[in-house]
Amino acid sequence: MSHGVAPAGPFEQPATFEFNAENKALADVIIARYPAGRQQSAIVPLLDIAQRQCGGWLPRAAMEYLSALLGMAPIRVYEVASFYTMFNMAPIGKHLVQVCTTTPCWLRGSDEVLAACKSKLGIGINQTTKDEMFSLMEVECLGACVNAPMVQINDDYYEDLTAEKTDAILDALARGETPAAGPQNGRQMSCPEGGPTTLTTLKAGE
């Protein structure tokens, strides 16, 4: 029934779920954006908040909690949650590594990046390491084609990768460090490699 990333092993569904005070306040703000009777429109952001509160996955209790909160049938919540690949139906690793393999990244070497992830983590696509530190996922275009190839790890983009740089990032994460996000080859954002090539005479503030 579940799709997407598989958990490291058997797991238990928590019996109950409830937003903590901070998230409840956030949820109220989001729900208030929609007219009365249309609260269901808030389902996607609320699922995201619930997933973050649960450590990266959506327990059944959370979906049922949201269905009661928004006054919709549980199956309707489940339909939405299962539609989006960003929602996980089972516990995943601490770091969710999403490797983009769409054409631009693929042309720029995403095969090597993916292979590096597989061999470094010792898992295949849609699997979770035994220590529950990493989950690996293959995703479609994340919109960072200028900096291809790239991976998304939790909320951060790591761009302009090679197999070695991918290894280094994963090693750093495994040591508990937080490697700097963004381009890994020294370029600034998505500017040309080696510095600007146009508008070079323009000074900031002029």
Binding site: M1, A73, I75, R76, Y78, E79, S82
Partner: peptide
Amino acid sequence: EEIGAIGRGET
């Protein structure tokens, strides 16, 4: 509201 369509696309 008990029957629904889960997943998307081919799945």
